[in-house]
Write a protein that binds this DNA or RNA. Structure first.
Lengths: 231, 231
DNA sequence: ACCATCTGACAACAATTCGTGTCACTTTAC
DNA sequence: GTAAAGTGACACGAATTGTTGTCAGATGGT
């Protein structure tokens, strides 16, 4: 703070205020506008049908400001993807913080926040589940990294809730990858059907899968000979 | 053979033989060549980077014969997708027929044939898991239909192996959708990592997920009056 | 031998889009 | 008030691609 004199409005030939807004703030605002517009257009028209001009029209800006903040459409797609994933992560984290309690409650809260976010933002859903794929190897890798992050989050959460049930590392991470895929595929079906089924059904099915695999892993670790639902 | 008289090479002003091959056979051959070339190019370059010319060069034919058999690139993609899915289904079915026995053996056989097919045909894998998505709503629906078919196959197989454990219809189909997504996402991770992990690890992880959910559903069905997590 | 059909190579045209440049107008600094 | 920087609208060239059309040469039936 107290850096209000970073560029004293006197001598700088470049970067002066305009309409009472600094150049950084103006750029950031334009960038944000384009990002929002990009999400809207890509998520509704599809990435391949998205032109730079369409994004600019949606943002109320011109192409010049597109290239001011993004080198091309692919860069915009990546930023939009990262932006949405951040929002999603924050929403899930907030939901977990608000529902501290039983593991089942936590799980239901996280799943509900995940699926309701996708339902409430269908353009975001389409972007992060469909449009992000098959654009380029670099974009595919970004997608994969994010999915692996969620898988790791799943693993660490399970470890926290059921400590002492660690398993073979590769096996466990593979299973976590599968579970994430299960959640995503249910979301994709739900989205492609126009969110026809009730949210509770999707959450219940997702919970069934997660609980099934979690208890199975725990039972297998204990070399179970007792009733599985005893816990 | 012995069908040499299908179209007697006498009176037809159109469609005569050429190099000893009937016009239907020539067309079918060209169509097949283009289909194969399409799979190769789309699966390696990606659908968006695939041009009609590139497919024709790969097939050793010219654009004219492309449009003889396909109205555009999207049609080629759909046919290629259907072609690969048919191959995959046949391979899985053959594997199931060859390994009649315990449920576990059957499951391992089916999963092994699935993942080994993807490993042995990486271009096919890329096409059916990545390139097919986000092209157009119609293509998306075709993808969704196929995924639901596999989910239904999973359900009916489970019903056959564990009869009398039917559950709520929507719930069960949602769970099946999730399981298919788990298998596919493990395949996608495997593919995008260059098939780094051994096949057996992927199959084992997939089997863990399937067995966990299957037994969980059976257990829940037997204790349907109790709710083990509700307390 | 002769003509219609088949084939392959490639030209040609239209349409699209990217990325940059121009120009008039507005706002700010001095 | 003036000049420089900021803004917006739009034009422009370049490149790419889908799709159809042309044309010379090969092949087959009679």
């Amino acid at each position: 703070m107290a850096t209000m004199s970073t560029s004293s409005p006197s001598r700088s030939p470049r970067g002066r205020a305009y309409r009472g807004v600094s150049i950084e703030a103006r750029r950031a605002g334009r960038r944000h506008k384009i990002l929002q517009a990009g999400v809207a257009v890509i998520g509704s028209q599809g990435f391949h049908a998205t032109t730079v001009k369409a994004v600019c029209v949606e943002a109320g800006l011109t192409e010049r400001y597109f290239y001011e903040s993004f080198s091309n459409s692919e860069a915009l797609l990546c930023e939009a993807y990262a932006h949405i994933i951040t929002q999603l992560r924050e929403r899930i984290a907030a939901s977990l913080n608000a529902h501290q309690g039983q593991p089942d409650t936590l799980m239901a809260a996280a799943l509900t926040s995940y699926y309701s976010y996708l339902r409430d933002h269908p353009e975001h859903a389409r972007l992060i589940m469909i449009e992000i794929l098959g654009v380029s190897p670099m974009v595919d890798q970004q997608y994969r990294r994010v999915m692996e992050e969620f898988a790791q989050f799943l693993r660490s959460t399970r470890q926290a809730l059921y400590p002492g049930t660690a398993q073979d590392d590769l096996h466990e991470s593979m299973v976590a990858t599968g579970l994430i895929g299960a959640l995503v595929n249910m979301a994709m079906r739900w989205m492609l059907s126009g969110y026809r089924e009730p949210l509770e059904s999707v959450v219940a099915a997702a919970q069934t899968v997660l609980v099934a695999v979690t208890t199975h892993l725990a039972d297998n670790h204990l070399a179970s000979s007792e009733s599985p639902s005893d816990g």
